[in-house]
Design a protein around this nucleic acid. Structure first.
Lengths: 214, 214
DNA sequence: AAGTAAGTGGAGGTGATTCCTCAACTTACC
DNA sequence: GGTAAGTTGAGGAATCACCTCCACTTACTT
């Protein structure tokens, strides 16, 4: 049965508030926060979204789609290098402005969000492959490095946006210059595996449920 | 008056245990942890070190001296570039192996540890200046970038040492290649100021006292 | 206009986690 | 053997997050 009109309106309020609160504090934000921000009772939030996961999923599924679209556009850029770096710059900007989106993007291997994850991985592979073929990307960088670089840059962004917005861009540019194919580069050694990446990503996002055993 | 022999022995046990526990969990470790690890009662720890700060200071002051020595050696390296990158690599290795040392190093502007901070800043300036003069370090990188790079790399190290030890080195090498002076580098824009750095560093370390107001 | 199912609010239960104290007990040393 | 120094760990106090429950309010139906 359809929701009553007031319930529908509250649902939308909650989603909007959740977006703002998660943008500011990431997955670490509490549902109490969301409720107050939305101007509704805590119970109302729990009635509509029985678990934090469900709320997060409702808020960020669409935003992850945007990331997928961004990756598709990167693949269509005039040059592979432009596509690659443009994707890095734009997604870093998005993640810096929305901590919840960052946490969601780093959780793409998790149950929720798995769909977006499966869409974006092949795109990243292609973006990297294209840049390798073009000869602009150093040969020993792989698409596995993508999420790690993003995690590092956006983690710094979280720590610095409050006191010096945009600072993270400086370090992204540094890493981008490090990614250029060039004689005289050092050697990066063995690339991490998919399993490594998944484990590291999980470490980089605050647990949604109360912290596990120590 | 001197400590009784058993008290002296316990004090040493506590320091040793604190080192291990802080190495594993950083400043976020609890004094209860330290006590259990040392095999003494919690009260004993508090009798000897009335606050967490005092214990941290007792454990890490010497280790920070080691960092200062490392910087001095870097300045004496055959080439400026070797000195600079060697310092980055070695200190990153130390920080990856000892999370408490990392937290201490990133707190060098704080009350405790201020002494080491005042010693190391001019050394870092000289290391960078020497590499600029040598022409191997890109002109738009400054010594202010030092702590940020270290914070980024060692934060990744904290997240990855558990599942893939040494992974952080890959990204340090990437940043080092990004630091090389080269035609075709992008532009980094304005360097952060000392005030910026201090604010960001504070954000990167878990608060020693219970978290402040929200 | 009245009935009723749907929706609401938020105090408070539950369970973690941390910091730190204190009073009864033990030990080193003279 | 006396006593000051040292030890212990249960537990007080504070904080924090998740989530439940039920007395109350509201939208919609007839």
């Amino acid at each position: 049965m359809a929701l009553r009109r007031d319930a529908q309106r509250n649902r939308e309020r909650i989603l909007r508030a959740a977006h703002e609160v998660f943008a500011a504090r990431g997955f670490a934000a509490t549902l109490d926060d969301v409720a107050h921000h939305a101007g509704v009772g805590i119970g109302t939030v729990y009635r509509r979204f029985p678990t934090k996961e469900e709320l997060i999923e409702a808020v960020f599924t669409d935003r992850l789609e945007d990331l997928v679209t961004l990756a598709e556009e990167a693949l269509a850029a005039p040059s592979a290098w432009e596509g690659l770096t443009g994707f890095l710059r734009t997604s870093a900007r998005w993640h810096a402005a929305d901590r919840g989106l960052r946490d969601a993007a780093l959780s793409m291997d998790e149950q929720h969000f798995k769909k977006a994850g499966e869409q974006i991985v092949p795109l990243l592979e292609q973006i990297m492959e294209r840049a390798h073929a073009e000869g602009t990307l150093r040969a020993d960088a792989g698409f596995q490095d993508f999420p790690i670089i993003m995690a590092m840059v956006t983690e710094m962004a979280q720590h610095s946006e409050g006191c010096r917005p945009g600072l993270y861009e400086r370090y992204l540019e540094l890493m981008i210059d490090g990614l250029r194919a060039r004689p005289g580069n050092g050697s990066l050694g063995a690339a991490p595996t998919g399993t490594d990446i998944r484990a590291v990503m999980r470490e980089c996002v605050p647990p949604i449920k109360p912290a596990p055993r120590s």
